[in-house]
């Protein structure tokens, strides 16, 4: 990936980050921490890798994304809106009665959302089922799925991991958003996952570990994962919870935060200044 393209993707990610902060800030409360840590990933997938058509979200030849950490829905909505699946104005309806954008992902409510998720671990199994179904149907589509590090405490993740390796689901690319924080504290304190990449390797997955905020290395990992055959792929992304949101990044308790438009606008202004200063 050349520097120009990296610059473009960084610019898009900044916009998606601003849209997400605005979306949650307008509501006043939300899962800002884990929403910020997957911005680069969703930007890269939707703007560089996935075969999708915003006008035909259920197109049978599309690639799929199952956001198993369903509480990061607001980032996915901002990404889908940015990509043109639905109007950006919808973002201000997050969690309002009758909305198409619920806190956790719903395949029946939001154009472009491929699976209903939110009870942790379940989306990962479903993604494995989708990958199996697509292989049975002889389709060449890829299935991307994102789990959280706290979500990796769920036994169902590892049941599905064994299954996917046994069935050699090489059309499946998983990502762990390893931001080292879960709701009640750090993963090290609550339930230590290390060595996480070694666990995935031992479960029979083609495993890579990269900086989840660095487009060059993340893109390289996704390309290698897509080219890999005979095994499912897991990309363990070292990320920062709250990344790029000035008032959330670095806080221990940023899983779900209350904040209003005043704070949101300050964080957005900092990002906008980066746009100008950074020359994206």
């Amino acid at each position: 990936m050349n520097k120009t393209r990296i610059g473009e993707l960084e610019g898009i990610a900044r916009e998606i980050r601003m849209l997400t902060i605005d979306e949650i800030g307008f509501l006043g409360v939300g899962h800002i921490g884990g929403a910020m840590s997957v911005v680069e990933l969703l930007t890269l997938l939707y703007y560089e890798h996935m075969v999708v058509d915003p006008a035909k979200p259920r197109e049978s030849e599309r690639d799929w994304l199952v956001l198993s950490k369903g509480h990061a829905g607001p980032t996915l909505y901002a990404t889908l809106a940015h990509k043109g699946f639905f109007p950006r104005e919808w973002l201000h309806t997050l969690n309002q009665g009758g909305t198409s954008l619920p806190s956790h992902c719903d395949r029946n409510l939001t154009p472009g959302v491929d699976m209903t998720t939110g009870s942790l671990g379940q989306g990962f199994s479903a993604a494995v089922g989708v990958a199996l179904g697509l292989l049975m149907q002889g389709r060449s589509s890829k299935v991307f799925t994102v789990i959280g590090d706290g979500e990796s405490d769920e036994g169902q993740v590892w049941e599905a991991a064994m299954f996917a390796a046994h069935h050699k689901l090489d059309n499946l690319v998983g990502f762990t958003d390893y931001n080292k924080q879960q709701l009640d504290g750090t993963t090290k304190d609550i339930l230590d996952l290390e060595s996480l990449d070694e666990k995935w390797r031992a479960f029979g997955w083609f495993t890579q570990r990269v900086n989840g905020h660095d487009f060059a290395s993340l893109d390289e990992a996704v390309r290698r994962a897509k080219a890999n055959t005979g095994k499912p792929s897991m990309i363990v992304m070292d990320t920062i919870k709250g990344k790029g949101c000035s008032f959330a990044e670095g806080l221990v308790s940023n899983h779900n935060m209350s904040f209003g438009m005043e704070e949101a606008n300050k964080a957005i202004a900092i990002l906008r200044a980066e746009t100008v200063g950074g020359g994206a």
């Binding site: 199994s125 494995v128 089922g129 990958a131 199996l132 179904g133 049941e159 064994m162």
Partner: peptide
């Protein structure tokens, strides 16, 4: 033989996989 999927002793995963399969039209 290609249409019977034995997931092993993992009922929660079985129902999750069944859900994913049905999302593809199975």
């Amino acid at each position: 033989p290609d249409r019977l999927v034995n997931v092993g002793v993992a009922e929660a995963n079985m129902v999750g996989i069944a859900s994913g399969l049905s999302a593809t039209g199975k």
